[in-house]
Structure formats: C-alpha cells, structure tokens
Amino acid sequence: MSRFEEELKRDKFVCSECSRCKKIVWPPSNYCNKCLNETTWREISRKGKLVEYSYNKGECFGIVEFESQIRIVGTVKGSERPDVGQIMNLEKCDYDGDEIFIFSSTVQRNGSQNS
C-alpha cells in the first residue's frame, strides 16, 4: 500500500505539496509537476464544493473540489438531491483496493450551515 492509501485507511485526506514552490500536486506524486522538486505530504481541507453529480442504482456520486483545485469523485450521502456548487464535507475516506471518498452536505435540515 502506498503512503496515500495508508493515510486514507486512517481516514486522513492528504496530498503532495512541493517542498520548494508549495504547489499542491494531485493526484499524489513524489515530485512537483511545476518545478520537479520533491514533495512532502500535507492534510487537505475536508470542506469542498460540489462540481457535478449523478446517480448509480439510487446512490448519488459526484465530483467535489477541495482547496479550489483538488477534484475527486466519491459517494454523496443524503436523501435529498444535492445542488451543484453546494458546500460538502469529506465525511470519510478509506481504502479497500479502491480509494473511497464519502461526502455529506454541510447544510442541516433546518437550513443552517455547519461552521
């Protein structure tokens, strides 16, 4: 298992960041794709924005964008149809041979938003 996969298994969402120019490199890589220097790991904000979604056998899946640049596809939890542009939390990540990302809406039933 790679370091990225190990971190996912611990429910940590990390990505590569260049040790020199600080660029975030996604998907993770040992080298920066701007200045080709070595990267280090850093945790990524778990709050993102829903870019697009669809349904697979009744289960919603979609693309969520984190830190305005990291886009990942995962399962969108919740019984209501989400809105594109809606703020989502990365509720859980895991690894079982595939990368598992589970998103949930930050909007509560009463319409208030979590901080």
């Binding site: 693309i63 595939d98 990368e99």
Partner: peptide
C-alpha cells in the same frame, strides 16, 4: 487504475454519466 481521483468510480460509465449530467444541466 492510475487515476486515484476517480475513487471507486473508475469504470468509464461513471465519467460518461458525469459528462451527461453536465451537458444536460
């Protein structure tokens, strides 16, 4: 399989479905 950003939705039907959602919208 390289594309980790697809998570468990690696099969091509999932990207095509998201393309379709976007075009429909």
């Amino acid at each position: 399989s390289w594309d980790k950003s697809r998570g468990k939705y690696k099969h091509p039907i999932f990207w095509s479905s998201l393309f379709a959602s976007s075009h429909m919208r």
